[in-house]
Computed example of a mutant assay.
Amino acid sequence: MTAELPGDIAPGSWHPNRDRARQVQTAVKVVCGTFAAVSILTTLGIVATLIFETIEFLQAVSLWQFLTDTKWTPLFASKQFGIFVLVSATVTISVISVLVALPLGLLAAICLSEYATPRVRRILKPVLEILAGIPTVVYGYFALLTVTPVLKTFIPELGRFNALSASLVLGIMITPMVASLSEDAISAVPRSLKDGAYALGSTKHETILSVVLPAALSGIVASLILAVSRAIGETMIVTLAAGANPTLGFNPLVPVMTMTAFIVQVSLGDAAVGTLEYKTIFAVGMTLFIMTLTLNGFSFWFVCRFREKYE
Rank of each mutant, 00 (worst) to 15 (best):
A3I: 14
A3K: 11
E4F: 00
P6L: 03
I9R: 08
A10S: 11
A10N: 06
P11M: 01
G12R: 00
G12M: 00
G12T: 02
P16G: 13
N17I: 15
V24T: 12
V24Q: 11
Q25A: 15
T26P: 01
A27K: 05
K29R: 12
C32S: 08
G33R: 04
T34P: 00
T34S: 13
A37E: 03
A37C: 10
A37P: 00
S39G: 06
L44Q: 00
I46M: 14
V47G: 01
V47S: 00
V47L: 04
T49P: 08
I55P: 02
F57M: 09
A60C: 07
Q65Y: 04
Q65I: 04
L67G: 01
T68H: 11
L75W: 05
L75E: 09
K79S: 13
Q80P: 07
F81G: 03
V85P: 04
L86H: 10
L99S: 14
V100H: 05
L102W: 10
P103I: 10
A108C: 10
A109H: 09
E114K: 03
A116W: 02
T117L: 07
R119L: 13
R121Y: 10
R122M: 11
P126L: 08
V127I: 15
A132I: 14
I134W: 06
P135A: 02
P135K: 04
T136Q: 07
V137K: 05
Y141K: 06
Y141V: 07
V147E: 09
L151V: 12
L151F: 12
K152P: 00
F154G: 03
I155S: 02
E157S: 12
E157H: 07
N162L: 00
A163I: 09
A166V: 10
S167N: 09
S167C: 05
L168W: 07
M173Y: 06
M173H: 07
I174Y: 11
P176H: 02
M177Y: 11
M177G: 05
S180I: 10
S180D: 14
S180Y: 12
S180Q: 13
D184Y: 05
I186R: 01
P190A: 15
R191L: 09
L193R: 12
K194C: 09
D195I: 11
D195P: 04
G196A: 15
A197F: 04
A199F: 04
L200C: 13
K204C: 03
T207M: 11
L209G: 01
S210W: 03
V211P: 07
L213T: 05
P214E: 14
A215L: 00
A216R: 05
L217H: 13
G219N: 14
A222C: 06
I225K: 01
I225F: 01
A227M: 06
I232H: 12
E234R: 02
M236L: 14
V238A: 14
L240P: 08
G243L: 00
P246I: 15
L248M: 11
L248T: 07
N251M: 14
V254T: 14
P255H: 08
P255E: 06
M257T: 07
M257H: 02
I263S: 08
V266P: 01
V266W: 06
G269Y: 12
D270M: 15
G274Q: 05
T275F: 06
K279Q: 15
I281T: 06
A283C: 03
A283P: 03
V284A: 12
G285L: 07
T287W: 06
I290K: 08
L293S: 14
L295V: 13
G297M: 08
G297E: 00
F300C: 00
F302P: 09
C304V: 01
K309E: 13
Y310E: 06
E311H: 14
